[in-house]
């Protein structure tokens, strides 16, 4: 590709794709195999997106396209990890810290957003991903199904379970906190 055309394409990429950097990073922090990998996942996503930017149709949903690439990156990382398992000690410590964050809220107060966020860490990666795409990023079931490469029925059932588990988790912890408090 000649340098002028390449520069032009780079400008379009910055305008169309890099505009979604914060959204991708925010989501990656929640759905990447570990939060510390979020930046690597996003960087890898953008490098792959740039590599195949020729296949992106201007005017189509760039955010959904980037999400699809990002979930492919995450799946590759996950399958690599399954082949070569190495669970860092920190991960378990992080989970304990998060659990205490969920449990320690005052039952007299209403549930706070940070507690809901902490509770999502106890959902499976599949449930968390669909919850993020539909609830937080407000994508349709069809778009979420395309991004995750699963049937739309799977999106619906995962979302249903994710919401139910999250609700149960918050209710259980609220009840647990009440009991511990002698109420």
């Amino acid at each position: 590709m000649n340098p002028r055309k390449l520069e032009l394409q780079r400008q379009v990429f910055e305008r169309e794709a890099l505009a979604h950097l914060d959204v991708l990073l925010r989501t990656a922090k929640r759905v990447a195999p570990t939060p510390v990998e979020a930046e690597d996942v996003v960087q890898e996503t953008y490098l792959r997106a740039w590599k195949h930017f020729d296949s992106f149709e201007t005017g189509s949903n760039c955010r959904a396209w980037l999400f699809r690439i990002m979930f492919n990156v995450i799946n590759s990382k996950r399958s690599n990890r399954e082949k070569h398992p190495e669970i860092p000690l920190l991960e378990e410590e992080d989970k304990q810290a998060q659990l205490s964050n969920v449990v320690a809220f005052d039952p007299l107060k209403k549930i706070e957003s940070s507690q809901v966020l902490a509770a999502t860490n106890f959902l499976s990666p599949e449930h968390r991903a669909v919850l993020w795409l539909v609830v937080v990023e407000e994508l349709s079931y069809r778009e979420a199904a395309e991004i995750l490469e699963v049937p739309i029925g799977t999106v619906m059932s995962r979302l249903h379970r994710a919401r139910r588990e999250l609700r149960a988790l918050l209710m259980t912890n609220r009840a647990g906190a009440r009991m511990a408090d002698g109420r």
Partner: peptide, 17 residues
């Protein structure tokens, strides 16, 4: 409310990118 709280928490998280 549960969805709204999740959205609020996520929007409050402004990553330094």
């Amino acid at each position: 409310v549960q969805d709204q709280l999740l959205k609020q928490a996520t929007c409050a998280d402004k990553p330094n990118s």
